[in-house]
Design a protein around this nucleic acid. Sequence first.
RNA 1: CGGGGUGUAGCGCAGUCCGGUUAGCGCAUCUGUUUUGGGAACAGAGGGUCCCAGGUUCGAAUCCUGGUACCCCGACCA
Length: 493
Amino acid sequence: MAIELKGLTKRSEDYSKWYNELVVKADLAEQADVRGCMVIKPYGYAIWEKMQRVLDDMFKETGVQNAYFPLLIPKSFLSREAEHVEGFAKECAVVTHYRLKTNETHDGVIVDPEAKLEEELIVRPTSETIIWNTYKNWIHSYRDLPVLCNQWCNVMRWEMRTRLFLRTSEFLWQEGHTAHATREEAEARAKQMLKVYADFAERYMAVPVVQGVKSETERFAGALDTYTIEAMMQDGKALQSGTSHFLGQNFGKAFDVQFTDKDGKLDYAWATSWGVSTRLMGALIMTHSDDNGLVLPPALAPIQVVIVPIYKGADQLEAINNKIQPLIDKFKAMGISVKYDNADNKRPGFKFADYELKGVPVRLVMGGRDLENNTVEVMRRDTLEKETVSFDGIETYVQNLLDEIQKNIFKKAKDFRDAHIYECDDYEEFKQKVKNGGFFLCHWDGTAETEAKIKADTQATIRCVPYMFEQTEGVDMVSGKPSKCRVLIARSY
RNA sequence: CGGGGUGUAGCGCAGUCCGGUUAGCGCAUCUGUUUUGGGAACAGAGGGUCCCAGGUUCGAAUCCUGGUACCCCGACCA
């Protein structure tokens, strides 16, 4: 059928299918031929690159420097921290040999059994162990502290079931690892980096997030505290979008990172780690997109403005080209990324649909009518509203419109989220409502048993103890025991 | 690891039950002409180890045996 490449499954019909189609059709990524892995296509990668650039600057403003540590981790490193290995052991890829050889029939290769490694190497699922093994050599005195490193890299977690951007066997991320002389300093750093993530999500991605701290069961393996930002997708499910961990002295002790403090006493270094991944791409897609495709925030869109000419014959095309060229130069001088698509192998209607699918925030159209009237048609992606405006001063108009779109999609996402946050004190009511998505603020007695019961009954989990709401004491809706505060409960990705 | 399903052109599929001309359709691709204010039309062309191995048969995409890969639903997870 000709419909095959047209249109998109409606969001409301099948959210998962819609998401998958969107990722593929908008040219962001596709399933790789390798199990559970993903190919990020140039358009998708351009968005990721822009995210990286902004985040990197934000990190550097807090004193963090980039570094790089090895991909392969000796197996013994992972066993140093008991909780940590328990958390990751089930999903590690293991390197056992270092050589191949041709098989007996000379039509393929086999693993050379002679080339077995004495100690297996683990493809990093996260780098705490190898980094703290290195920090042992870097840190001897309080004068060596703090150490503030970040690395941009790939990691591998052998997940059973994968989804483009949200969960893939290999993913790209940044992981920051800091070492400090005091508990207070490390805790402050963990909170500070969460704040950076929240700022980034809200100001650049236009994704509103709930900041909070994880319950013990949801904590990172080996952490004393895990701070998180949780975003709400359009199906009402939560997406954990970034985490920052206060690791205490667990890794300092496991890797024997000791330093001499001001008083000449030996102490173990205090640690934090924090990361965001290409999962943020999933958050971006699922927060703003609609039935026509992607909606990108202007702050991260690789193409902010697309210009499409409509013409009859070569003469008219040339007239439009001449009219548009100075505008392109103006946009470039203003730092606005613009694409002029005058390719003649696609018709205007196709281009309109295609750039909408790809989420380009603003589209300008110039045709014969506009040439005559000195006007241009402006379409904004977030509302799909069209307007014909004067060509004179269009660059300022567009710049204001980009700002307006950035604000508008954030407001839209925030209004949606706030409309789906419920306070709930009745477990039966909760069980009914939570199926349809949304964030639930409920009293919790603080026990893992209650948490497990909620998960078993509803598949929903405690996302965090949120910071942003005023807290009062109350009664746990499941156990009836006293509760110090409300926690955020939701079904999640 | 438990339950279900699928492997046929770049992609999506029909054909398999009931074996039989040269394996077919849509999309995409290429060529040509006309088109261009919301996903163009017509004409023509190219493209296949029918997942792999073995078996049954005059004859296998189709039946049998074994293998393998991937997808979906659970458990796990950023």
